[in-house]
Amino acid sequence: MRGTSLRPLWGWGLLALGLGGFPLLASEFYIRLATEILIMALFAMSFNLLLGYGGMLSFGHAGFYAVGAYTVAILMKKTSVPFFLAFPAAPAVTALVAAVTGYFCVRLRGFYFSILTLAFGQLIWGVIFKWSALTEGDDGIVGIRAPTFLTSSGGSYYFTLVLTAACIGLLWMIIESPFGRTLLAIRENTDRTQFIGVDVNRLRLLAFVLSATFAGVAGALFAPFNGSVFPTFALWTKSGEVVMMSILGGMHTFLGPAVGAAIMLSLDQMISVYTEYWPFVLGVILLVLVLFFPAGITGFVRVLARRESAGTRLA
């Protein structure tokens, strides 16, 4: 027991050191790429609370990401609310929107749940697209002025790193809590969970709202980082991205979706230098992965590690 609990501690220490020291060594371009990876990692991990831990495949998660991003954008550009107030408002507004849409979604199971989340996600996109007076419609809201400490790529990176790490810590706490364990039970056997006296729909709703709230934080981080927000943030293809990141990285590992986000964004940068058919390459990678490594990359690494430790035990 002691040995297994110490080793991850080392791992976390190294990760913290690497992430903390990264901007000192890397160029502007890579610092910005890393910042984007952190934001997408948080977005994907928030989504995976539903998919990997709750067994709920949402196809509308980008809707909440967009609500977070637009809340910051609208408050800062349209009402000149300062950033330090607009930023926390984003998860609050997202939670509210998720509570309303989730109320309907969590009543449905499986496939029907997925379709309704897709519908609500597209509805959010539609509202953003059409309500030009508030959202500037298709033009998006451009020229969001981040506070001075966020204008440098380093400052923006560290701000994102601290918030992402804090949110991931909270997600970890949630997963390890009685609530998180009960959510796993619902994933495993929804009916049985009712018969131990748990109000399944209420618990699923709480999971839905928590998951959306963290997606809202990710959106709120992206808005000042990007300087502009567009309706495409809410589009179902954006929702598809986090589904792919989770599957690619491994949805049954805590950090799996973050690994998926890092790989997808890095590949995007690398491959699109050579070919404009990057989605084709991504398609092939996903195909191979789903067929041969259904547990995702982290799942595969875990199997390898287990095999190795079994080997040393034998030797």
Partner: peptide
């Protein structure tokens, strides 16, 4: 009807937590 991927311990714990009214604790 059990929770297949959870350990026997976790199977029972989830039910104990429900009985104690702690299923929603974060």
């Amino acid at each position: 009807s059990i929770f297949p991927k959870l350990s026997a311990f976790e199977n029972v714990r989830v039910s104990v937590l429900a009985h104690e009214g702690k299923s929603f604790r974060l």
